[in-house]
């Protein structure tokens, strides 16, 4: 098992190199660069000479292959370079935002799981009852309503009902939990609704399937109490597919919350991504893509490990 995990971690290296190559060259295909945006972006009249100097400073005048080499060497030494726009290290730029984005993702996941599992289970057990219909309605809503719109509704209600808006500056959880939570609970709720809808539907359908399995009938034929049939025999099997969905959704939340972050005025990874793309900030974009790719792979590995922990049929050696 440990060997397998290490093996998988090692396998990430070639994948990441592949990602690095693809993202590097894709960015260079697009015309324009950071210097133009930065110096001429506001219609400023800047001489070619200045532009050239700036390009020289950023290394953009070197041949493509040399630039690529520099970047790969940087990667090998775990140095993502500096943002071409702010001149601050890429790691630092991402680091500031990652804490916030991660926290929103984790909170949304907790909310989703806490709501989805009981909701999905109840709906499956009471299939076709009014409870089931309510759950189905609520979850369809979750899929149909975009998170950012729900976010806007939340903000508007807070404003009209309490004449209050959540703080807009980020306070880390360990500094002031109350301030932190009053800011981040709202986006977590807005995102968590959709998230829980996806998971609840998964739990419901997979539990319905499992309840039809032969081994459930066996458990009943043994005289097992019905609540134990559900919790021990059915639910544990039914939650396996839900783990995958939870993992995928979680990975998506890092970097995928562009619009929602805008609504809540959060300075997160999504916003940084949009900014860096509009500024042609190559190094920062590259660094973020690498970070998100790594993150996806780690989440995937975690999901596979959880699977193996829950399902004895899966054993990695």
């Amino acid at each position: 098992m440990l060997r397998y995990a290490i093996h998988r971690l090692l396998l990430m290296i070639p994948t990441l190199i592949g990602v690095a190559i693809v993202v590097f060259f894709m960015l260079r295909v697009v015309p324009g660069d950071v210097v133009e945006v930065k110096l001429r972006g506001d219609g400023g009249n800047v001489s070619e000479e200045t532009l050239k100097l700036e390009r020289q400073r950023l290394g953009l005048d070197k041949p493509l292959i040399a630039q690529f080499g520099d970047w790969m060497i940087g990667l090998a030494t775990l140095d993502l370079g500096k943002s071409m726009w702010t001149d601050r290290p890429v790691i630092e730029e991402i680091g500031i935002r990652l804490e916030l984005s991660l926290q929103v993702a984790v909170m949304a996941t907790i909310i989703a799981v806490l709501i989805a599992i009981p909701m999905g289970t109840l709906a499956a057990l009471l299939r076709d009852s009014w409870i089931d219909y309510v759950v189905r309605l609520v979850t369809i809503g979750g899929l149909a309503v975009p998170s950012f719109w729900l976010g806007m509704l939340l903000m508007l209600s807070l404003l009209t009902l309490f004449n209050w808006l959540p703080p807009i500056t980020f306070t880390p959880l360990y500094v002031d939990p109350v301030a932190n939570l009053t800011q981040l609970i709202w986006p977590a709720l807005a995102v968590g609704y959709r998230y829980s809808a996806v998971v609840a539907r998964m739990v419901r359908s997979s539990l319905l399937e499992v309840l039809n399995e032969d081994y459930i009938r066996t458990a009943r034929a043994k005289g097992v109490f019905e609540n134990i049939v559900v919790s021990r025999h059915a639910l544990r099997n039914a939650l396996l597919p839900a783990i995958t969905v939870i993992g995928l959704e979680f990975a998506f939340l890092i970097g995928g919350l562009v619009v929602t972050e805008q609504v809540f005025n959060l300075n997160g990874i999504g916003k940084l991504f949009v900014q860096s793309v509009s500024r042609n900030d190559f190094t920062l974009i590259q660094g973020m893509v690498m970070m998100i790719a790594l993150f996806y792979m780690l989440v995937n590995l975690t999901v596979d490990m959880l699977y193996a922990a829950f399902d004895p049929r899966i054993r990695y050696r």
Partner: peptide
């Protein structure tokens, strides 16, 4: 039951 392959709970 008939199907021994599916009549036992796979994760217990």
């Amino acid at each position: 039951f008939q199907e021994p392959m599916t009549s036992l709970n796979p994760i217990l």
